[in-house]
Amino acid sequence: MSDLRVEVAVVGAGLMGAATAWELSRRGVSVALVEAFDPGHRHGSSHGTSRIVRRAYADPFYVRLTARAMERWAEAEADTGTTLLRSTGGLDHGRARDPVGLAGLMLQEGVPHELLSAAEAQARWPGMRFDGPVLFHPQAGVLDADAAVAAWVRRVGELGGVVLRRTRVLGIEPAGDGVLLRTDGPAIAADRVVVAAGPWLPELAPALGVPVGLPPLTVTQQQVFHFRLRDPGAAWPTFVHKGQLQLFGLPSGADGGSRPAFKVAQHDGGTPTTASGRDGVVDPASRERVAGYVAEFLPGLDPEPVAEASCLYTTTPTEDFVLDRVGPVVVVSPCSGHGAKFAALVGVLAADLVLGRGSAEPRFALAAAAVW
């Protein structure tokens, strides 16, 4: 017996789950969006006001995917009446980033860009330092993830969907042609279920009865730091710098406090953990590395952090995403530290899988399949 009957249940109201529930609701599908905490919580990977949106990838597959994602973000803003993206332009530099090679790929894919010398880039952004060629592309900026989740969850409710807050899914089991979700609240009967559990996916998959072979998933705790701009009026682009370390930076938004700040973090070097076992303590070694980088390459920032936080990455061996369907179960895990910019598009791709419209992108396919 169930307490609630819907066409699709979505487990997890982070960026990916909220986007999927919103897209399904827009298509007239009845949805229950089930969140173990409150939407917008700080325990996982979807919180914060500053995430990079960029076109620059070394892989043409993702360059093309960013073009589709940008179109979907415009649709999301129009439908929700909420500004979600802010354009800043983006920089890529460092020997391991290969700005010259990236410029060639941008040219091939028709993405506007400039290739600058270190001196030219430093003249344009005097608060930054560069150690070689610099790629600039204007189609980059900042995503407000908090605003996106809140807007999508709101729209799900407005479109007739059910949002269950502070409700934990305890198990999923076959029920006729669909599934039954057992929770610590109502039992939910659905034709399909979307599992968008983020860093909880590795530990929840067996209990959720997902009948698939997931690829190896590694969860790490990462740190982000916010530094005060010496010139509050300076307009800085986002950046990715890969040398001995892999770092990125972008305007902080509200995460950095009331005064203008810039977020800088290390993409690599996270600490292995689990979603339920993380300690949330910022690694002092990471703080020291990032502050040292700021002192050397970002003299326009005060190198003493004014705010800091931890978050979680869920990473596949290839850093590709997981987005596939087996029977009534769709697994949505666009992860590996670079998925947020694609969330509006992921909602569309996941909804198509739920409704049987097309097949999964081979690079995102599950490792193995089973039939219930």
Rank of each mutant, 00 (worst) to 15 (best):
V210T: 11
Y62T: 10
V34T: 06
G270Y: 01
V195P: 04
C335P: 02
A58Y: 07
L201N: 04
L312M: 03
L65N: 07
G44I: 04
A78E: 15
D255F: 02
E120C: 03
A197E: 09
R154N: 15
A235L: 14
P39D: 08
L85H: 01
Q122P: 00
T316Q: 04
L116M: 15
V219D: 10
Q266M: 14
L84F: 02
D268S: 14
D38K: 12
P126T: 11
L105W: 03
D146A: 14
P39C: 06
A123H: 13
L214S: 03
V281G: 02
A67W: 05
W236R: 12
H241I: 01
G209L: 06
F37E: 15
V330T: 14
A343S: 15
P126K: 03
A9C: 06
W152P: 00
T80Q: 00
G81N: 09
A21D: 12
Q222W: 01
V153D: 02
H241E: 14
R27P: 01
R228E: 08
V346E: 02
P216D: 15
F225N: 09
A205V: 07
P206I: 07
L217Q: 00
G257M: 09
L143G: 05
S336W: 08
E361P: 12
S45Y: 06
A365L: 10
E75C: 07
R357L: 14
L353Y: 09
P133R: 06
V195A: 14
Y313F: 13
V329N: 01
R259D: 12
R182C: 08
A340Q: 09
S333N: 15
V290L: 10
S310Y: 00
Y62H: 13
Y57V: 04
